[in-house]
Design a protein around this nucleic acid. Structure first.
Lengths: 380, 380
DNA sequence: TCATCTTCCTTCGAAATCGAAGATATGGCG
DNA sequence: CGCCATATCTTCGATTTCGAAGGAAGATGA
């Protein structure tokens, strides 16, 4: 399933191609070769022909889809106090998504074993009989070394430092395993909803602040820590020391956690970032002012990055993203201060993929691993 | 010369491969296919076999080089008051490099026509007889729209806005033409000297401040303006209005031009950035303090970008780069404030390619255009 | 000195890929 | 309705690429 066949499968799975002709155009292969390969893929049960598409002035294309029996992916997105878990088919379409409470602070062993059990349960309940699991993956709220699948120096995952997450997860499933930073997964998932954007910045505004970068259509990891914006120094009157040891980090002013602690000090009880959104929607002025200020600070940091990276779009997701004043303040700061050349065609918008973005991203990256690693049905 | 053959030629030209075996390893083609293609390239006069390399424990490789008669590239790097001009062979090795005075403010027509004449002169004087010119290219100190080859909204090129530079230059030579921002060219040229670095930031500290970014081994352009760091707001006590209309831009504090105007106000006469370097080397305290402060400001901006992009190296070039305190202050700021994860393996160093970096970069990008555009000896 | 290992390169039949031509199916137009 | 333009997909011979085997040339070590 490597090489040409893998490419074709990927194009179909990603929804970029629906017919042999489209595959030929996008893959660069000759139409005849595409036909051959597609026939083989249908023969091996991975693709199916499903009706006909609409004519574009000539013969109607025969639509191709991934076979529903081709396989399943089990994916998760770990947060501090809860996890989203899902089963996807190979095209990345969710069959089930659930959110369950889960304390990441209980440590890696307990959490990963719990996750594995939850995957098994989902498979039992919702997995169609006879459809094999092809890969498992999870997002974690901290930096991941892509080579080893270890969590490295996470600021909000006590007990996880240097833990071989991929290895432990792989011990439960003899399958391709993916472990990646949650904001990076969000970025990959979101990128599928922005097909025309080559360069994309995806901001995750939740209890922390994360960011994933898509450059040239692909996730940019750098040496593993790329995308961090939370420990940038912001312009500020007061002086707050961040958990990282430096003063005046963005995270200490503009993260959901920081906003919550300010509100709680003011006697307004909030338990999670979504509560802040509710307060803003209820018109509570303290909350609105705080959120707007957070947006301004984030926007000022983005200013530097927008001039530098020149993205096609900035997408804001995470549990704070439904708060209108946040986006508005980010937009104001970026458009006011960036070079006209950089903002001319820049779109700043909220997530198109919604809360499942990270799960979709995990599916997308996992599919690559599955295609690369598992020749024709066997799983390594 | 497209496809496989182009890839092979590129690998040899870039100095990445010197033998058929290396070509096979790097190109991914089978050794037998490589041999075939190489034979053809030798037959068409583009490659030559030149002696033997050193054994690595087995039979000695037969070294391959681009034929000296394969072609020439004429390249330039336009500055505000002078231009560097050179002839390169297809492997990017300079035959001649000259620096000539040239006032960019005289406008695009005059400057480009002057450049074309200078190219002709260099070819007459230094071009080996019978070796065809294969491409021309130039760097300009302003943003370039990659699609049209026009200069867009340049802050330091009066009269050039929206001028079709590539078109005008192409009118003199019926050849592939390259027009690109000077810092971007520097980045490409420098990247050849940092073969192990996938992600690279190249800072040009001259009378202006420019930056080029290499992501995944390739120049990142964004929508054409990527790499700008000069109009980022810096933390500062006073308030200076930049030419871009905003307050407290980095360029207004840390560019060579800004430093020169401060020194001149202090009664220390300087005419060009290199004079500042001389003052620093002579131990003039005013100059040293200014340069150190500029480095600190630049470093603080880089801080944000290093956390975000996670480069393998930051390379500092441009006419101010020989000033030791500049690099020292940049290093101090970056290492002090960035995430340990991002600085762990980060190298911050001065240019390896020297003053010709931009010319080398132009050669590298031009070679791609030449290989892509000119099938077997004909030039389109 | 001589067998053995490594590396480089070529040979040659097998396999994959291409591309031109044609078969199939549709929309548009007089 | 018949014809043409367009688009999709297949057939089939020509071409390219592969990969296993082997030849060439040198390093290594007993």
């Amino acid at each position: 399933m490597r090489g040409a066949q893998g490419d074709l499968l990927r194009l179909v799975a990603a929804g970029q191609a629906e017919s042999r002709a489209e595959l030929a155009r996008l893959s660069g292969l000759a139409a005849s070769s595409v036909s051959l390969r597609v026939e083989e893929l249908i023969g091996s049960g991975l693709l199916v022909e499903e009706g006909e598409g609409t004519s574009r002035g000539g013969r109607r294309p025969r639509r191709l889809r991934l076979s529903p029996t081709a396989g399943l992916l089990a994916v998760a997105d770990l947060g501090a106090h809860h996890a989203r878990l899902g089963l996807l088919d190979l095209s990345g379409t969710p069959l089930v998504v659930e959110e369950r409470p889960c304390e990441i602070a209980e440590g890696p062993e307990a959490t990963i074993d719990w996750m594995a059990a939850a995957f098994e349960e989902l498979l039992d309940k919702h997995g169609p009989a006879g459809v094999p699991l092809r890969g498992v993956g999870t997002g974690v709220p901290g930096p991941v070394d892509p080579a080893s699948g270890r969590v490295v120096a996470p600021s909000r995952m006590p007990g996880w430092n240097n833990f071989p997450v991929a290895e432990r997860l792989g011990a439960h499933f003899d399958l391709p395993v993916l472990v990646e930073n949650d904001a990076n997964l969000m970025a990959v998932g979101e990128a599928r909803s922005w097909p025309k954007c080559e360069t994309l910045m995806v901001l995750k505004a939740g209890s922390g602040i994360g960011c994933g970068v898509i450059v040239n259509g692909r996730l940019h990891r750098g040496r593993g820590a790329a995308g961090d914006i939370s420990h940038v120094r912001v312009r500020s009157d007061s002086s707050v020391t961040c958990s990282c040891g430096h003063d005046d980090c963005l995270e200490a002013y503009a993260s959901g956690a920081a906003l919550m602690s300010v509100l709680n000090e003011q006697g307004i009880a909030v338990g999670r970032p979504a509560d802040i959104v509710a307060l803003v929607e209820d018109g509570v002025p303290e909350a609105t002012a705080l959120v707007r200020n957070a947006g301004r600070l984030i926007g000022e940091v983005l200013t530097v990055l927008v001039n530098f990276i020149n993205p096609d779009a900035i997408v804001v997701g995470g549990s704070l993203s439904p708060a209108e004043p946040l986006i508005a303040a980010i937009r104001a700061a970026v458009y006011e201060r960036c070079l006209p050349l950089a903002t001319r065609d820049l779109e700043i918008a909220t997530t198109r993929s919604g809360r499942d973005a990270a799960l979709l991203g995990a599916g997308s990256l996992l599919l690559d691993a599955v295609i690369a690693g598992a020749p024709d049905g066997r799983h390594t």
